[in-house]
Write a protein that binds this DNA or RNA. Sequence first.
DNA 1: GGTCGCCTGGTA
DNA 2: TACCAGGCGACC
Length: 264
Amino acid sequence: MPELPEVEHASRVLRDAAVGKAVRDVKVLHPSHRRRLRPRHVARLRSATVTRIERRGKHQIVHLSTGDALLVHFRMTGDWLVDDASAPIPKFARVVIELSDGVRVSLVDPRALSTVVLHGAGASPLPELGPEATDPSVTVETFGRALARRRVSIKHALLDQRVLAGVGNIYAAEALWMAQIDPRAAASSLSRARQARLLEAVRAVLARAQESTGRYRDGGPDGGPGRFEVYDREGVSCSRCGSRIRRIVQGGRSTYYCPKCQRR
DNA sequence: GGTCGCCTGGTA
DNA sequence: TACCAGGCGACC
């Protein structure tokens, strides 16, 4: 699920479930998670109380009374599932946190690509990130400067978390469609006007996704309103000009766009 | 710069 | 059975 709107929603779920509670037990169920979250980390978690949940881009940071921070990234398919510790372990649960009041928070992740790491107090646990994609204080000037430095396509630049934190593959494609920009255009080639349009579009698609608590797809079986404009719509008519949506691969990832009304 | 590996499930 | 997947870091 996770792009910024989904992660924002998930972090709220986690906040409601966990803040102010002590960790009673932690189970690390998948080998790939066991590689990062060792028994000594689990031991440290067991004596901690959750003080605060923070989100930065698509990262979630669980601050603990011990000064440690648990860093969670959902990658492609992670999500939180909150239930009661007495219930059977949920399907695809990879890391399970039981809290003092019997509430259980499970990281469910079919592909098991998510990451959970415990960081000690001090050093910043996060990679270099740009401003939040939804931060209203981002200006066309700062956004444009970040783009001008990248010698990659504009689609690739939007996925670079150092430009704007939180933009993922779907909303990058949607924003480029809305701004009528060809995803293959060089990031550094955008005029000021197109930079402005793109920033506006990123905000619009994320805001719209936020409203519907996550995905802004699923308009219904007939793909009614609320569906993506281009993402996963290869061969479908563009709602703006009627041309067929095309799928290409950029950096190993799918990009969907309208070859007629999105220009270089 | 691009490509690959991580993992596993859903779908054509 | 094959392909595809909303991410990211390591690698050439």
